[in-house]
């Protein structure tokens, strides 16, 4: 669930900031990227450091 988004983010996704909030981020991902995004989330939860992924 997206809590906040900046303007650039909304522009990137081609929508209004208001529309983003409370939507699932996954909704914007391509089907084939979902698994990798979930893996990223898991890594983030387990570590203190910054984690990255290319999707």
């Amino acid at each position: 669930m997206i809590l906040e988004a900046n303007l650039a983010g909304a522009f990137l996704l081609g929508t209004e900031r208001a529309n983003l909030v409370n939507n699932r981020f996954q909704a914007y991902l391509a089907q084939r990227s979902l698994q990798e995004f979930n893996a990223l989330c898991r890594r983030v939860m387990e570590s203190e450091a910054k984690e990255t992924a290319e999707l």
Binding site: S33, L40, A49, K50, E51, A53, E54
Partner: peptide
């Protein structure tokens, strides 16, 4: 990631950097 460009819906490659708060 699915985004929108000038020509409507386009596929974007994005780099996500994430940190837990």
């Amino acid at each position: 990631m699915n985004g929108f460009g000038k020509e409507g819906k386009v596929h974007l490659w994005v780099l996500i950097e994430a940190r837990a708060i």
